[in-house]
Write a protein that binds this DNA or RNA. Structure first.
Length: 289
DNA sequence: AGCGTGCGCCGCCATT
DNA sequence: CAAATGGCGGCGCACG
């Protein structure tokens, strides 16, 4: 991994962290396999730097794989690299991107989008999902999964389910009845998803269902249900002010106590504490220089 | 904080 | 014969 900047002087990020680039644009960067353009509050100025934009125009058309994180998409757009492509960016800026560049097909829904050799991602952490997807492509899903675990990365899923984060995607079953069951769980985490009930819906004996599910996804049915419920609960805690108790019921945990224990076991924090730490205050955005 | 019990899981074997 | 499926029993543990 190498960093390239317009200058070799320290570059301050929006959080004041100073980075020193490995190379200057003018020096050329040698052969590049994947070019990743970050976003952040500095991107407006960068888009006004003719030398940088010109460099991007050239490099962007030559690299085998081009990517942006967050508002980095604006830079790619300024360099004319997104014409006619399907891309995403930070949700708070998606409308602006679409307005300023009508020639781009902007979709703010997925956490990242791959359009051929062009990869774009939503907010900063979505960039991790994007990077993991690249690892998966270059190597295999198992390695991506290992890394995700190593990073103690929380699973992320777009609401439209058109695109799962790699960790969940690697658990996509082949067989139709099992996919159907998975869909039901994802759509209604609070529903009745005991092993027996799911087996009945799939027209299988519970023994066979559990065995098949495990073989296809690598996770046992109940554990999968628990994961999905945990995800749903996390999202509600992050994005709403719904009382913890009600979140527990809505997400299929019988009681608040059950959800609490699940949180402690998997995430290491209790629900209330989790909300205190991660609840987002609406329009606040995260950007990276 | 502690506890009984029901559920999930799996090994094993029979059946299809 | 191999593979798919079903049933049983027992163990561990999480739910309430």
């Amino acid at each position: 991994v190498r960093t390239i900047a317009a200058t070799l002087d320290p570059v301050r990020t929006s959080s004041r962290l100073a980075l020193i680039a490995d190379a200057r644009l003018s020096a050329g960067a040698g052969r590049i396999d994947t070019l990743i353009v970050p976003g952040g509050s500095g991107r407006a100025g960068a888009a006004d730097d003719p030398a940088l934009v010109r460099w991007l125009e050239r490099a962007g058309t030559r690299v085998p794989r081009l990517a942006s994180v967050c508002t980095g998409a604006f830079l790619l757009a300024a360099a004319g690299l997104l014409r006619g492509r399907r891309v995403t960016t930070h949700w708070a800026f998606a409308e602006e991107l679409a307005r300023r560049h009508p020639e781009i097909d902007v979709d703010a829904e997925p956490i990242y989008i791959r359009d051929g050799s062009l990869w774009t991602s939503a907010g900063v952490t979505a960039g991790i999902d994007l990077a993991l997807a690249m690892v998966e492509e270059d190597h295999d899903p198992e390695l991506a999964l290992q890394i995700a675990r190593h990073l103690v990365m929380f699973l992320r899923r777009p609401s439209n389910q058109a695109q799962f984060s790699v960790t969940l995607a690697s658990q996509q079953p082949e067989r139709e009845p099992l996919r159907e069951i998975q869909r039901e769980i994802l759509e209604q985490p609070g529903g009745e998803h005991s092993v027996e009930a799911m087996a009945a819906r799939a027209h299988m004996s519970s023994r066979h269902f559990a065995r098949a599910f495990r073989a296809e996804t690598g996770v046992t049915p109940a554990r999968y249900v628990e994961r999905v419920r945990l995800e749903a609960a996390r999202r509600r805690l992050e994005e709403t002010a719904t009382p913890v108790q009600r979140v527990a019921i809505e997400c299929g945990f019988g009681t608040g106590e059950t959800m609490r224990r699940s949180f402690l076991r998997v995430l290491g924090v209790a629900p209330a504490e989790y909300r205190r730490r991660f609840h987002s205050r609406g329009d606040r955005t995260t950007t990276l220089a």
